[in-house]
Design a protein around this nucleic acid. Structure first.
Lengths: 111, 111
DNA sequence: CTATTTTGCAACCAAAAGGTTTCATTTTAT
DNA sequence: ATAAAATGAAACCTTTTGGTTGCAAAATAG
């Protein structure tokens, strides 16, 4: 089964889980309390998140605390950033176009 | 059907399509030539990419050229960046730990 | 005009995804 | 020693995903 970070964060529930445990470690029931799906459904989402390294599980007695470990997000960041020049280029082109078609508005000063 | 950028870039084929047309506009057949799936399969991937705004289609005679429009990637960037502090914090903690446990290596200077 | 290209899309299919209920196991609390 | 709590995972179900073949329509080439 495909288990990469891109696929892991594609699901909105998993993104919410990340946002929950980023601030404090929680166990399954605590996480599940924030959603209207079953504990098992959350358990499976968390399994996917651990399998791709975004979460680690800390055992404490009969409880398992989920702890965010978000370094792997750099894969996403790196991928997106390689394209930043492309979308900036488009925005620059738009800006130039506007400057050329309305050349007499020299500055955004008071009207 | 869910049609957000997160889901769009989750598929590796779609990420490859983006990387292909980021550099030059191509039509379906040209794109499909780079993969071992059918033209229709690519057509459907591109449909998803246009539906979420990452690609625009320029009509030219009987051909349709796919053009990358990657501004929407900022949604991904924004989401990831909000967590950068978390993973940096962890890396900093690791660094501090190493510095504390090996305090006599004052500087990385010549040995 | 007719043949060829290029595209759009319906119909269909297998596998993956996301969810549920159910039950066993491990720990803790009384 | 029991009851309760927390978790792991199997079995099952429905919808979505990613892919296919086949065919019709639009535009171009000869």
């Amino acid at each position: 089964m495909r288990r990469d970070v891109f696929q892991a964060i594609a699901d909105p529930t998993r993104r919410e889980i990340i946002s929950l445990i980023a601030h404090q470690s929680l166990n399954v029931n605590a996480v599940a309390g924030n959603f209207d799906v079953s504990r098992t459904a959350i358990y499976k989402h968390v399994k996917i998140l651990t399998e791709c390294g975004l979460i680690v599980i800390k055992k404490q007695g009969r409880e398992r605390f989920y702890e965010a470990q978000l370094e792997k997000l750099h894969e996403i960041s790196d991928w997106v950033e390689q394209y930043r020049q492309f979308w900036n280029a488009r925005l620059d082109a738009l800006e130039n176009y506007l400057n050329e078609t309305r050349p007499r508005e020299k500055k955004p000063g008071k009207r």
